[in-house]
Design a protein around this nucleic acid. Structure first.
Lengths: 206, 206
DNA sequence: TGGAAAGTGAACCAATCGGTTTATGTTGCT
DNA sequence: AGCAACATAAACCGATTGGTTCACTTTCCA
């Protein structure tokens, strides 16, 4: 029935494979990355690679989720949830925008978006370890802040999604469609500040 | 030097080719769509197809820009810019969200995002005929509304981008990553209304 | 009506890619 | 030392794809 494909996450060369895959996927995209290239970059034979992963797609999913979870962890551990909302939002927004505008963040997004309709697993795995984590974490914070009387929010998860989207304004599409190659710190700050302003105008207490 | 590739936009079968391409790209994505399939769907020989377009990519760019411009036109002609801001925003937001969540809108976005880093022309052409048009049109409207004292906005284009992003919240990523297959009218309305609320809380006069 | 332009379809080409297999090392444990 | 698990390199396979060519037919228009 439901064939559960087991990925062996241990082994002498598992990390090597994962890192090689990450680099090549990042450079060439999903279709663009050939398994031969990945094996070469990982310093591993193709046969070895296929002993760890049953499929090119599984390999990518593993890369993407690993990287997303790493980011989420990073964010969660570096943010002081007891600071005033403006400050928390600014920190979270900056961290978030920096990640999604990084080369790796861009490529993960590109590939997931492109392959999601033919290989739904890829998109769903990404959604679960990326956007969904951020939303859950933010909604949880909002709940506390509402409890403290710092914010007034009715729909917590919608508010979380809105903040995420606001942080992308302008700068992210320009990057995504190759209009710009890089983003300056000043641009990040400007967009995130404006996102915080907007968010607080709507959901700030009073 | 700069080789300007001329696309012959006239010819007995030009429209046929374009429509066949649109259908197949929509169904299979960029890599997934084979030129043979497109020719077959268009009811045209492959040789004929290649007499109109020098390249598979040019063919897609033509499809994408045509469709984006059609949408923009549609929006511009169907919106009453003299109505109160809330109403205008709601109309624009709904129209926009409906398009980007449509099958065609989704696929165009998918392909453009995926191919933009290897073929920057695709992304840039899309950006110019999609996001950039919407931003320009919105900023222009905002300027008038500010003149009438209905809105208070300092950075017109940023505000336009923010509104666009707000309309995507929640529903759009879920679609993009295959978590959901369709979107209900109720969901569209809910997200756009919330976007308008947020926008007005920040930029509404008084 | 006649000839140029446009279109056809099918064969063809060169290249790539994901994945498998095989025969041969290499590691590491006991 | 000896054995089993792991790893390698390279050949190989089948399938697909974008793009070209060519001999032939249809369409259009002066």
């Amino acid at each position: 029935m439901t064939e559960t494909v087991q990925i062996v996450r241990k082994g002498r060369k598992f990390t090597q494979v994962l890192e090689g895959a990450r680099d090549v996927f990042m450079a060439d995209g999903f279709e663009g990355a050939s398994v031969d290239d990945i094996a070469k970059a990982a310093g591993v034979s193709k046969a070895t690679l296929y002993s760890y992963f049953p499929d090119k797609r599984f390999l990518f999913v593993e890369v993407a989720t690993t990287e997303c979870l790493r980011q989420a962890d990073d964010a969660i551990h570096n943010i002081d949830r007891s600071a005033p909302p403006r400050q928390v939002l600014f920190q979270v927004g900056t961290h978030f925008l920096r990640f999604i505008t990084s080369t790796l963040g861009q490529q993960i997004f590109r590939i997931c978006v492109a392959e999601s309709d033919r290989f739904p697993d890829i998109g769903q795995a990404f959604y679960a370890s990326g956007p969904a984590v951020m939303r859950r974490e933010m909604a949880e914070y909002f709940e506390q802040a509402v409890g403290r009387g710092e914010l007034q929010i009715d729909d917590l998860t919608l508010a979380a999604d809105q903040f995420g989207e606001l942080c992308k304004a302008d700068v992210w599409p320009r990057l995504m469609f190759g209009v710009n190659k890089t983003v300056t710190d000043a641009e990040v700050t400007r967009v995130v500040e404006s996102a915080v302003d907007m968010f607080m105008a709507r959901y700030g207490a009073q």
